[in-house]
Design a protein around this nucleic acid. Structure first.
Lengths: 195, 195, 195, 195
DNA sequence: GATGAATGAGGTTTCATTCAT
DNA sequence: AATGAATGAAACCTCATTCAT
């Protein structure tokens, strides 16, 4: 066995474990929230607790890793939707729908986005860093077209956080329609006035 | 001292204790959230922990008791605002502003409203029971005036819960303007369409 | 039952527990050293772990409490021995013998006296604060009598710490005679020269 | 490559690894004590943790190996000092100074010398086996010269262990002068009496 | 032989809740 | 009724040690 193939083998092992952890964490987060006990996640992944700490020394790192794929997909969808949609408003609505879909299916994620106002929390920071610019572009495009004299009544950070908040607890309550509420919020925003 | 006077004395004692507990809990909730340690509340009230359990066997019961006055005030304000406001829409906006004011100043309260969708959580149930009808009246009034062919795009329960969600974490993040977002949501609702 | 007797009853309870803890800790310290697991001490005392934390929030506080009586006895013995002994040198030797007796019978205590050089460790600090002055008086008395031109070749802090060190591990090694070594050190000190 | 040359190559490899480990351990012991985490040592040596266990299955074996050179140097210095010094007492003092110098600069080493009285601990056993005879010769020489009727008030084992103990924690406490105390102890020993 | 990922025992600390006084 | 001491489950995190690759 060559050095290289040996290295690859080991990495494959570790990667398999890491994937098992991400899958387990995703599943546990759904049922027990992102603050679920480390032991529970480890047990579901079929690994020892130490293994979690090796791969993800802190909890935010794990949470970020669990949702990284979807956050990236969301971020990438922004520019694409702007291209493909008939109007910027439609692009914003479509993107918001994607974002809601993402948050609603990840129980507890929306709540975990709060974090310190200081932005010190790694998860919150990651979401903000990655998605606020995307959301901002869409928002600006929508208002650019609406008329030069109009400016958005909220900035992208507020809109993002508002959407995130509206999605909290959505999956657990069939009577609560987060999607509808978010679209109404967007309607309010696009109406260009907060009064 | 007669048996009766003794009983009366004890009741006065107990009532005084209960009030001290409510005041202490309100203060602690503001700084440490509604999940603050029991000990902290007891200490601030100057009573033993057992006393809390005697008066409020479960935490939701305590939380409900702490905020009962303000919930009642909110509920009472609904009909009054409908009378006093120039339009039903204005009444709705004014009421919503009251509700937001209430939630934002009570650190952690908005988050605690989640509870099970089954309505099994005492706090959630109390809020819903008491305020959804009020909110419903205002909503109906606004749409009744707007035109017979219009129906609200969301029911009062969804609107209430959406407003509650938008207020989560508002006090901790100066960059987040819950009031503005809620009003934009109301704008969206009143625009009569979710598309 | 009067308020006062009731209070006394409760205190008696707590005091009994505290004493059980001190006894258990003393016993466990002998076999497992002063870093013995909290659980072990709690188990031996027949109390829950939380009870230890209630009475002694930090480990040094527990250790200090365990040995306080004996430290105080040692401190009190200093002046008395100076009065009763035929010479100051004899007083110093007698006191040192007492101190050695104390340390040798408390397995692990001598080692625990190390602590940070900064003196930040509570146990180390307590020993130093309480005993160095006593040891200093004896030392000064011995040298005062020996002749005005003589000064001790070490200060009381060094002598104390040296004696403490010589006692480390004494109980565990029958071939090691800490008492003898300490007296030889004192002989060296009293000989008035380090060369 | 022949089998033999391959074996030789591997041995060179292994020896290089072992040396790297010894160097790394020596460095880490200075900063973190002889109980430093295995990982830390492995990392500094640039090898895997398993390699440490292959070369030194137990920690005492590693510690012994790390200090073997210096222990041997100490042992060798004994006879030489006896030859070169003007008096046996001077030789003893010089040797003791060497030993103290060694212990004080090796953070945590003195403390690790304790071990079981049964001599089961490999580190303790090695030190005793190697140095007690040397110390014994010097002691005997000093007392032989002093007068036939004098015998040392302590045996070499006690003196060695006493010196070792006096050096515990010396590096961490600038106010503690282990060298001075040890010389005073030797003075006491040479004064030929423990009373 | 070497590697380092994985394991899991072991120690710590916090707090909701009970119950003797 | 009130008290608050006691309980102990629960969660965290760290390493020594093993073993598959």
């Amino acid at each position: 066995m060559t050095d290289e193939s040996e290295r690859r083998t080991k990495r494959a092992d570790a990667r398999r474990n890491e994937q098992a952890l991400l899958d387990a964490a995703a599943a546990v987060f759904v049922t027990s929230g992102v603050d679920a006990p480390v032991r529970e996640i480890a047990a579901r992944a079929g690994v020892g607790m130490g293994t979690i700490y090796r791969h993800f020394p802190t909890r935010p790192e794990l949470v970020v890793a669990v949702y990284r794929h979807q956050v990236e997909a969301c971020a990438d969808a922004g520019p694409r939707l702007l291209d493909e949609s008939p109007t910027p408003e439609a692009a914003l609505r479509a993107w918001v729908a994607l974002f809601v879909e993402f948050l609603v299916t990840k129980h507890g994620l929306a709540g975990a986005l709060q974090g310190d106002s200081a932005g010190s929390d790694a998860l919150h920071a990651y979401f903000v860093d990655r998605l606020v610019p995307v959301c901002g572009s869409l928002l600006q495009a929508a208002f650019g077209r609406t008329g030069a004299r109009h400016v958005p009544p909220v900035d992208a950070y507020n809109l993002m956080k508002g959407i995130g908040n509206l999605c909290i607890g959505a999956a657990a309550d069939p009577a609560y329609d987060a999607y509808r509420l978010v679209q109404l919020l967007v309607t309010g925003v696009l109406s260009g006035s907060n009064r």
